[in-house]
Design a protein around this nucleic acid. Structure first.
Lengths: 200, 200
DNA sequence: TCATATGAGAACTTTATGAGAACTTTATGA
DNA sequence: TCATAAAGTTCTCATAAAGTTCTCATATGA
């Protein structure tokens, strides 16, 4: 029995048929119709494919019901809007535009997430235990928080400034911490923070 | 058997073929197709390369499955490991468990998102422009940040304490702001903060 | 010479696919 | 309600194709 979600050729064909049928007739097909639709004669075999599709999460089924199939819609990451809560307060509902922005943050192939330890960036609103979303970059920007690899060994989150042609200054966002200066060759910029997430 | 991740010439050729094939056909190749693709005749040898690629972390496999190969993306949505970046720094990689937690945060049916205006909760790490994920609740908890509707009109984010049987105290997380007390009938608790997101 | 990389191909195991019988459950009409 | 037809479920049997493991063999460089 299958344990993964890659479909075989026939499973894919069966799935495609179910989608086509339901769009055309507004209802889901019988097993015997699926069998005919994928050029086989046995409804038992059709049933086997239907069970595989269920296991793969492509459809859901109501056991024993006639036409007891339904297609599973993929649910994207999205957030519901505010609904009944009145506007005008210190919070506002999220627009579709912002929703897309958020979706991008989590699906962008060039970014990855790191969990923060320590509080050296607390004044930038990045707390111990938060996650930061990093976009890869070799360059640095004055206003962004960067992921920096020091001596190919230690990783840290800091603001960056160019001290002179051979040195770089790393600036924490916490008054209890000091700035530090490193020669360029000891520093490797990994990327910068594009997002931050906290789970309570 | 190999213990390191440098590919031999033929392994690289096999990997390149798999990438090309999957882009061209939208599915992964059979062993015999890989063999042909790298100019050899033995599917047994192709299998040996495929196993090496798996060991090197370039692909993953579903044993015995036809076309049971898939290419490992270097940067999945939520990074599995830090790669060359050593541990011990102030950040750490995210585990699958945490990834599920995050996914839940955004797909949970009972929660919604609000955008924060103002800085009354800044000491709790909730800044102006952040989004907070709210889980609906009529009850309140001393340690949680709540969404509160006042006089059915104004919405605010505050900590809550019970002052006495008829009054409730709303506590901001910002020393510049004062606590305020309201009679219970003017207050409606909407939910509490379970997550927070910031886009830079 | 020894370890490694490479290749062929046989032998074996597992998967993918199909037919269809036998049985259970559902839908439906009298 | 109840009988019956229709649909869903489970099962065995079968076969081709694909994956896996293995031995044998050659070449090459340290």
């Amino acid at each position: 029995m299958k344990e993964y979600s890659i479909l075989t050729a026939k499973e894919q064909k069966a799935y495609d048929f179910i989608v086509r049928y339901s769009k055309k007739y507004g209802k889901y097909p019988l097993l015997i119709e699926i069998a005919k639709g994928i050029d086989i004669k046995s409804k038992g075999v059709a049933h086997r494919y239907v069970k595989s599709l269920e296991k793969a999460g492509k459809i859901s089924r109501f056991s024993n019901k006639h036409r007891g199939i339904s297609i599973v819609e993929k649910k994207p990451i999205f957030l519901k809007s505010l609904g009944s809560i009145a506007a005008g307060g210190p919070i506002e509902a999220i627009s579709d535009q912002q929703r897309i922005e958020l979706e991008y943050l989590f699906t962008n192939k060039k970014s990855y997430a790191l969990k923060v330890k320590g509080d050296s960036m607390i004044d930038a609103g990045i707390h111990d235990g938060d996650w930061v979303i990093i976009e890869e970059s070799k360059k640095f920007y004055k206003s962004k928080v960067h992921v920096i690899l020091i001596d190919n060994q230690d990783v840290t989150l800091k603001y960056i400034e160019k001290e002179n042609s051979e040195e770089i200054k790393l600036i924490p966002a916490n008054k209890s911490y000091k700035e530090s200066t490193y020669p360029i060759e000891r520093i490797s910029i990994q990327g910068y923070v594009v997002g931050q997430v906290r789970i309570y």
